Simulated scan of single mutants.
Amino acid sequence: MRRGSTVVVLDRLTTSLTPIEINSGDKQPALRAGEGATNAIADEFGRVLAIDTRGEEIMAFATDPLIMKQRYPVPGSPYALAFAPRRDLAWVTLTARNQLVGYDTAGGQPREAHRLPTVRQPNSVAVNPHTGTIYIASATGDGLQVVRN
């Protein structure tokens, strides 16, 4: 997530988000992101959404200043994350259940809007922002799943 000349980076080793000044490379104070954050994305509301796989939750962070605004439970080993701006949906893969869940993030708290079966071990997800088509990739070689939305 970029805000002005600063980018917010997820550090998986320390499970934290760190703002970094692009021009100088200077790090600003980091903020813990759960027990084991694995992936993060920016949404259209200027937030960073992060998946805490170990803690089984999705978190939303404001970026100016960097502060956690929301935590919501997501059982089933959430891992990959993508955002669909046309529908304000955060798509989360659940590797323990081989599912994809769409959460409406436009309100104050995420609300489950969709739940779909996926390929085995869905470790990657991407959304075409123009068409809403969702692409889910298997980490075990079971292929690529396409969901037209």
Results as ranks from 00 to 15, higher is better:
123 N>P: 00
121 Q>E: 09
145 Q>P: 12
68 M>C: 08
106 A>K: 08
92 V>D: 00
135 Y>H: 13
73 P>C: 07
112 E>R: 14
132 G>N: 04
107 G>A: 15
98 N>I: 02
102 G>F: 04
132 G>P: 05
112 E>F: 08
73 P>F: 09
127 V>N: 10
63 T>F: 02
99 Q>R: 07
114 H>L: 11
100 L>T: 02
60 A>M: 12
124 S>Q: 08
89 L>H: 06
88 D>I: 00
130 H>V: 10
63 T>Q: 10
113 A>I: 03
115 R>V: 09
117 P>Q: 06
128 N>P: 03
130 H>I: 10
84 A>V: 01
144 L>Y: 11
72 Y>W: 14
59 M>G: 01
55 G>E: 08
100 L>D: 00
137 A>H: 02
60 A>T: 03
109 Q>N: 14
57 E>S: 14
104 D>P: 07
124 S>R: 07
106 A>C: 00
83 F>M: 03
101 V>T: 04
108 G>N: 15
88 D>K: 06
138 S>R: 11
80 A>T: 05
101 V>W: 02
111 R>L: 15
110 P>E: 13
75 P>D: 11
120 R>D: 11
103 Y>G: 04
67 I>S: 13
69 K>M: 15
66 L>V: 03
141 G>N: 12
137 A>N: 09
109 Q>C: 12
129 P>T: 11
96 A>N: 02
103 Y>A: 05
59 M>W: 01
88 D>M: 03
60 A>N: 06
131 T>Y: 08
88 D>T: 00
119 V>L: 07
77 S>F: 04
55 G>S: 12
59 M>R: 00
118 T>N: 07
127 V>T: 14
112 E>Y: 01
53 T>E: 07
145 Q>K: 13
126 A>I: 11
128 N>M: 05
81 L>W: 11
120 R>H: 05
139 A>C: 09
146 V>A: 13
61 F>P: 06
141 G>T: 11
130 H>G: 12
107 G>T: 08
114 H>S: 09
126 A>T: 12
130 H>W: 09
80 A>I: 09
135 Y>P: 13
112 E>P: 05
61 F>N: 04
123 N>W: 08
